[in-house]
Design a protein around this nucleic acid. Sequence first.
DNA 1: CAGAAATCAAGAATTATTCTAAATCAAAAA
DNA 2: TTTTTGATTTAGAATAATTCTTGATTTCTG
Lengths: 143, 143
Amino acid sequence: MTRQRRLVYDVLLRDLDHPTASEVFLRAKDQLAGISLATVYNCLETLTEAGLVKQVNLDREPSRYCPNLNEHAHFFCMGCGAVEDVAPASRDGGLQGWCIPSGSRVEKMEVAMRGLCRRCAAGEEHSVETAASGASAPDRSAN
Amino acid sequence: MTRQRRLVYDVLLRDLDHPTASEVFLRAKDQLAGISLATVYNCLETLTEAGLVKQVNLDREPSRYCPNLNEHAHFFCMGCGAVEDVAPASRDGGLQGWCIPSGSRVEKMEVAMRGLCRRCAAGEEHSVETAASGASAPDRSAN
DNA sequence: CAGAAATCAAGAATTATTCTAAATCAAAAA
DNA sequence: TTTTTGATTTAGAATAATTCTTGATTTCTG
């Protein structure tokens, strides 16, 4: 654990907002002026390989990084761009919702949701969809 | 629906193996020598916007394309690289497995699994994990 | 068929990320 | 403390997938 790795990790732990590598770089520079973007990429890769950090991807957007090691999915708000962690409801985190072909082994599952966060959904007073209570029925067109 | 779009779409329908844009390009060239990679990208984008095709991403790998319009997840075999569609078991496709923050609206969910397909799992006679029956308990470390 | 609009092809441009090579650093050995 | 050794950092070049630009071509519409 070098100084740069420590710093990159601390940046991720400070705000749990799933920054991109460039965002991590900008924040890290404030505390260690000489750090380079390549080093940030190196550190993020090292931390990811070490299992301290998870790389989070949605579509072809730049990768984001997340120090939450608990099992979780990610929610991407189409309104404000925020990314939130989503906890599993059941012990198996939705895997039983799918017909896994018999004989195959699932090593890991990645779940990403797109939609509007509470604040953005509330700001949309379109007709009846005021989203006051729980999540409304989603489209569920899983890729 | 131009000739090029029709061809790209036909290529996707012929083998349902989730080719990348480059692979689509190679297959399309056999039937329409003059087609360009840029056109293949254009057509794939147009077809995707039209809702006839879905773009499938895993990590930072090149996008793949899928003409299956039914709700489904994707299984990526780490052994042979094949991509399979995975049908939902329940009507809601695993969404109820997650604690959606109240007030937020989920518009769509993308589910990707990594593991070994039946053939690759069977080829691994490591100790006891012969994967004879159903899928063994996965790691479920959803990103 | 004329004119307008859409689409195509070729290659340049973009962008996130990775690679390279030289410089720096840190721990262990002397 | 100096030297050695190997890993790490840095800056910039390189890469790869994708997008953009431009002019040519095709396709509609009348």
